[in-house]
Each structure stands twice: as structure tokens, then as C-alpha cells.
Design a protein around this nucleic acid. Structure first.
Lengths: 339, 339
DNA sequence: CTGAAAGCGCTAACAA
DNA sequence: TTGTTAGCGCTTTCAG
């Protein structure tokens, strides 16, 4: 008998073919109740013969439960973002969840709502927000209260489940390391901050204060490595700079390049350190001293937190990890003729 | 009157509040039919007072249409992958679609089906497959026939809608450029290929054949820059190598670094070129000669193709773009003492 | 232009 | 253990 139309099989088709009722098929699908071995076998056979795939939409509607989570982020392709998302996806996939990506480009209310509404009207079990930047911060505050939420970031926030990387402590440690090398102070190149001040800047400032070193206004970079290069040119012209802490490795590479453009050598003339341990940081010449950040791990921890919330288990609502200092070749004692 | 429970408002609530029937609310939601201005106003007021968001699940179930597409990929965070996904997401968001990410780590049938079934049971309008690697290729062949599909890649395939970047032509051009500089032949470092041979390798071979140059077996790198560095060490030991074409910029940076480790200079001793125009390629010393690949653009074009299929419009089913050669500083005429 | 009625494919009580 | 009966929240006929 030919002519089966290619309409996807439904649970009703399966039930008919297996000679059982629809709920029985549902039972073998969900495992919610016991089914006799022979009926189960019949149902399973029917399922595979018909290539039946249950409709998630119908399922969600009837059960009010979903196996999808949304990740809301200001970007998706820069190193830290991409790795974090990768971690979330991995952890989600391991337990049968799918992840939906929502990019929020602006912190503007209307634009935000427009971007989010498409996602929020989807049947999602929960939301993970990458609170890395202003759009992320804004998005966090517009997630409906009835939806489980986890924020991922470098800075702690009250009353919200959160997985963080303790950037503040790590930045403090890195800055102290530079000071320990003998530098009078450490200059700072910021990446775009999520609020007034990010953890890296706070840690840097704290280390300088503790050491009684002068706190010089940071340079502001964009996410583009070439903005670091331009700052490198500025720094080269300022003989008082002997050590520079950059908000991330890509900017650090730009700064090194900018310094080199002007004939300065790293670390002989100026020490430069980065943050994140980007895959290319160790390939760079000189290999970058930096801080290793386990973004994927944070993503995984974030998903675990969310899964807890979704399942109504209690447990920790906060997960923090301390990034690790990676001493390589881009920092050394200050040159006598500079600083 | 307090005590509204926080149960999300449904279309029925809105209808009641606006004093109209449910279908009328539906009409203003979908715009499928004309509604008198006053009723429309009433409905809109009720919607915003109740903070009503239509349930996508119910909508999909009733209308059999979805505003979600799935992206299936072997990875998500390496440069080309991340940028491609970014392009798809951008184009999708612009027209109110949401994207779901599915990572397929292996080409193994069972593992693939497991990874894909979670996504395929979701109500999706179509699928975009990143056919960049073996898992991607395998995934493409397991997408149900009734689902609109677009493949994204560097190599053309029959009978399937596809957006590509013409890597073969670009690689040929790049190799010819090196040959034109006076190199007797060009060595090649491959990145993990999606099948037997990727477009970059094919283009390289073609250029060598046309020029009558010797075709030497390529080195095989992984996606990790450090694998390039190890290959750089090998190349340094082989004085016959004067020009190297690397499968991507990250590997090229590794190779340059490996060459430098052994005291060789680029491009004075050996010319090295990459592929992709990674954001750090121009920061590198020397700035990398490479090929600019518009991955995000390919992602966008892919989505547009998919949207066509979903909407049942006819039109082009293939979209190709030619990457652009970017001459910078990492390639020069061969050194007399090598090659 | 509008409402009544039916049904999308599934799960959740409830009996049997 | 199994089937029957009701919906989940929406869109889609079909009348009017």
C-alpha cells in the first residue's frame, strides 16, 4: 500500500498501529507510569516503524513543562561569550535540554523588549543571562518574575541565582604580581564595562590602593584588538608607563603591537599583561602573562544552577570560581630608563 | 482587588477583559483578518494591561507554523563557526525568528540521532546545517525530508539549498599569489577537513598543478594553534620549505611562532599565509597575508535562503560569495639560501 | 467584521 | 495496568 502522505506521524497513529490507547503510548514515551512489557514492545515497534517523533509543542501545552532554555547575551562570538555559551550548551545537551539563543544588542527598553519577546513567548523552562555588558544587565531585569533565571558574570548580585568567575580577586592578584616585580604603578586598559565598573577594574584599583601606588585613570578600549593598538601608541609616548594591565588578551595583543610599532619592546621596555587566557595568548610573542578564565565551566555551572531551580530542588544558588594566574613572558621588572 | 495569582494571562483573559471573543483577539495578534478600530484598541489595551504574551506552543499547535529555526553545528565557539552563527541569528532576529543551537560532536549515527532528536522534536520551521566538518556532514543527511534545510559551507553539494564561501577559488588565488612571488612551490598545512578534501586544499592543489609546481603532501593540523606551532618546528628543520599556506589564521600564527622558536623569520626566511582574516591576523607580527571570509554574511544569506523555503517562495537555492585576498606582510619573495 | 464550534497532539486526572 | 474524559491556549473554519 503506497501513498502514505508524508504528514508526520502523531501519537494517535502510533496508538492505532500498536492497538493500544493514546495515553498508553504517552506512558511509554514519558515513563510516567508502568506499562506491561508486551504493550510496551508493540508501542516501541510502532514508534520506530512510523518514525514517530512526539511534538514538543503539544507536549509543552499539555504538561506545562519544557525542555528548552534560553540564553540571553549581548554578543555571541567574542571569546568569553562564545565559550560561556558553549559550556551552557554542553551541560544542557547532556540532560536532554536544547538551548535557544537571544542576542540583545542594546540596553534600550523598547529594543530590548522586542528582542526578548520573541524568545519569551517560546515555551522555555528557564533563562540564563550573560551579564557581561549593559544589554545583558538590562535584559536581566526584564525577565518575567515567574521564570527561573540564572545570571552569569564576574560580579556578584543580590537575590538572584548566579555563577561567577571571581575576576576581582584575580585582577587584584595579577596587579599585585606586577607591583611585586618592582613597577611603581600599573596602568589599566579597560574593556567595555557592564556597569560603572567591572570586576577587573575594581581588583586592579584595590591592589594599587593596598600597595599605596598611584591610581591612574584607565584607558578605554572597545572589544576590537585594533583599539588596543591605538592605545599602545599613546602609551609608547608616555615614558612614565612601565606596566599595563589590559582587560583582556585580545586588547593586550593590540597594545603590544602598538608598542612594537613605536619601537618599544615587551617586556624589556614595558610589561603588558592580559586576562582570559585566549587560545592565542600563548602563541603571541612574547607569550602573554594572563589569568585563565574558565568560561565554559561557568556556563556549565550556570546551567546546573538553573536545572536546580527548574526542578524545584533547593541547593546552592551561587557558584563562584577563582581564575588562575598564568605567568608567562610578557611581564618583567621595570626598565630603568622608563617608569 | 489584590490577589491576582501570577499565572500568565491567556488569550481568554484578554478576550474577557476587552469584552470580545477569543478569535477576535487572535485576529489582532496575527493580523490575519481585519478588526474594527475600536475593538482593536480595546484588545491592545487589555493585552498590555495583562502583560499578555501569546503562548508559542499553543500557537504552533494550532497553526502548524513556527518562528524558530535550528542551527546544527559541530562546534560553536571557533571563529568561523561563531561568526556564521552570529550572522544567522542576526538575520533571523530581524524578522522575528529565534534560533536554537544544536551541537553534534560526533558523526556516529546513534550519538547524532540522540543529539538531534531533542531539537527535531521541537516545533521548528527549518534547519541550517554548518557543513564544516564530519559531524555537520553527517547531520545534514539525517534531517527529516519534510523539514526545509539549508547547508552552509565552502563546498557545493547537489540538491540542497546552500550558501557557500568559494574557498576553492580563494585558495587557488592565494597560492598563485605566493607562486607569483617566486616560490618554487607552496607547502600546505590543513585544518581538519570535512570530508576527504576541503576547498582550501583543492584550490591549493589546483594552483600548483596549473603552475606545474610540485605538490607536496600537506601537514595536518588540529584546530588548536599549538598544533601549528609544532608543525612550524618541523618546517624549520626542512630547508626546502620557502612558502606555507595554512588552512586558517590561527594555525598560521602557530606556524609563525614555531618558526620563530627556531630562529627563522617571517617573511624573510619563510613566507606564511593564513585564511579567514581572523580579528588578530592584522595584529600579528608580521601582519598576516590572508583571505577575508565573510562568515557572518554567509550566515545571513543562509537564513534568507531558508526563509524563502519556509515561505514557499521560489527563488535562488544557491548563494555563493568569493572571499577576498588580503595582502599584508607575512609573505615575500623567497630567500636565496632556502627553497 | 465578528462569534461559535472544532481541533492541533499531547498529558493528566479519574475510573475501571 | 489500562482506557475514558478533559483540557492545555491558540488558530481555523464556518455562519451570520
Amino acid at each position: 500500500m503506497p501513498g502514505q502522505t508524508s504528514r508526520p506521524a502523531t501519537i494517535t497513529d502510533v496508538a492505532a498501529r500498536a492497538g493500544v490507547s493514546v495515553p498508553t503510548v504517552s506512558r511509554v514515551l514519558t515513563g510516567a507510569a508502568r506499562v506491561s512489557p508486551d504493550k510496551r514492545r508493540l508501542v516501541e515497534a510502532a514508534i520506530s516503524e512510523l518514525r514517530f517523533r512526539p511534538s514538543a509543542a503539544a507536549r509543552v501545552l499539555a504538561s506545562r513543562r519544557s525542555q528548552v532554555i534560553a540564553v540571553i547575551a549581548g554578543e555571541t562570538s567574542r571569546y568569553g561569550y562564545a565559550e560561556t555559551i558553549r559550556g551552557v550548551e554542553e551541560a544542557a545537551r547532556a540532560v536532554g535540554y536544547t538551548v535557544m539563543i537571544t542576542v540583545v544588542e542594546s540596553a534600550d527598553q523598547d529594543e530590548l523588549d522586542r528582542a526578548m519577546s520573541a524568545t519569551l513567548s517560546q515555551p522555555i523552562a528557564g533563562v540564563i543571562v550573560l551579564k557581561f555588558d549593559p544589554p545583558g544587565v538590562a535584559a536581566l531585569h526584564r525577565v518575567p518574575a515567574d521564570l527561573p533565571v540564572v545570571a552569569l558574570s564576574g560580579v556578584r548580585e543580590k537575590n538572584i541565582a548566579q555563577a561567577v568567575l571571581d575576576e576581582t580577586r584575580a585582577a587584584e592578584e595579577l596587579t599585585a604580581f606586577l607591583l611585586g616585580l618592582g613597577h611603581a604603578t600599573v596602568h589599566h586598559v579597560r574593556v567595555p564595562p557592564s556597569r560603572r565598573e567591572d570586576g577587573r577594574t575594581t581588583g586592579w584599583r584595590r591592589a594599587l590602593r593596598k600597595a599605596g601606588a598611584e591610581v591612574i585613570t584607565p584607558y578605554d578600549a572597545t572589544w576590537e584588538p585594533r583599539s588596543g593598538r591605538a592605545i599602545g601608541h599613546e602609551i609608547a609616548a608616555d615614558a612614565s608607563v612601565s606596566a599595563v594591565f589590559c582587560g583582556n588578551d585580545e586588547i593586550a595583543m593590540g597594545v603590544v603591537r602598538g608598542l612594537n610599532d613605536q619601537g618599544l619592546r615587551v617586556p624589556e621596555d614595558v610589561s603588558v599583561v592580559g586576562f582570559d587566557n585566549h587560545p592565542l595568548a600563548e602563541m603571541w610573542s612574547p607569550a602573554l602573562t594572563t589569568v585563565e578564565q574558565d568560561f565554559a565551566g561557568m556556563g556549565r555551572r550556570g546551567f546546573d544552577l538553573l536545572a536546580q531551580l527548574v526542578n524545584g530542588e533547593d541547593g546552592r544558588t551561587f557558584s563562584s570560581e577563582r581564575p588562575r594566574l598564568l605567568v608567562r613572558d610578557s611581564a618583567a621588572a621595570p626598565a630603568p630608563q622608563r617608569g
